[in-house]
Design a protein around this nucleic acid. Structure first.
Length: 195
DNA sequence: CATGGGATTGACT
DNA sequence: GTCAATCCCATGC
């Protein structure tokens, strides 16, 4: 897998969110293709950076091309890719993956938490689910996405020009009408509700 | 120092 | 459809 460089992320967050569809995420031997993303920007009330620079959002305002991982609802670790120039708080939330390699390990991790066998389409179809399946934790916060342990790579030929549908973001209470969610059309690994 | 909310999920009705 | 679980940290007294 060829990793994306820092210049890819140092651009408007909406462009990066769209172009990350079809890219790969890899972590310690497990990987998948990104099929759903959401964009967040400091000008946007739903973004953590909206309130300004705090200890929590330090990564968000830092170097583009790094991982911003934070805990949601006290339980889930959510994976984001920091975008735009240093000093601008913006990131793309990775919301769903199509499993590629290491699916047995994903199924084992998800099954252990579910208390039953996990179906293939529920391994990574949600931002909390994909971090569970890939074993990504808050320790990955601040990591370089071109160097690892979490690495985002360029799309394969099959995913070079995916058909994309745009919709409104999920699970937020502010700025709920902005169409900043991007999904691969017709892919069953996209989380619900589908656009 | 106490409190409350959140970019979610899974179990249950 | 409803609801609890559970942690980081922003805010306010």
């Amino acid at each position: 897998m060829s990793a994306l460089g820092g210049a890819f992320y140092e651009r408007p967050v909406l462009e990066v969110a769209r172009e990350l569809i079809g890219c790969t995420v890899e972590h310690r031997g497990v990987s998948g293709v990104i099929v759903e993303t959401e964009a967040y920007h400091e000008s946007d009330p739903a973004c953590h950076a909206y309130a300004g620079l705090t200890p929590r959002t330090r990564t968000l305002f830092g170097d583009p091309g790094r991982a911003y991982v934070y805990r949601s609802y006290g339980i889930h670790a959510l994976l984001n890719a920091v975008c735009e120039p240093e000093g601008v708080g913006a990131a793309v939330l990775i919301r769903a993956l199509a499993p590629l390699t290491g699916t047995e390990q994903m199924a084992a991790r998800r099954g252990a938490l579910l208390g039953r066998a996990a179906r293939e389409h529920e391994l990574c179809s949600g931002p909390g689910r994909l971090t569970q399946a890939m074993g990504i934790t808050l320790e990955e916060d601040g990591g370089d996405l071109s160097a690892g342990p979490v690495v985002i790579g360029v799309p394969s030929e099959e995913w070079s020009a995916p058909e994309i549908v745009q919709g409104t973001r999920i699970g937020i209470t502010r700025a709920i009408d902005l169409p900043w969610r991007f999904c691969a059309v017709g892919n069953r690994h996209v989380s619900r509700p589908r656009p």
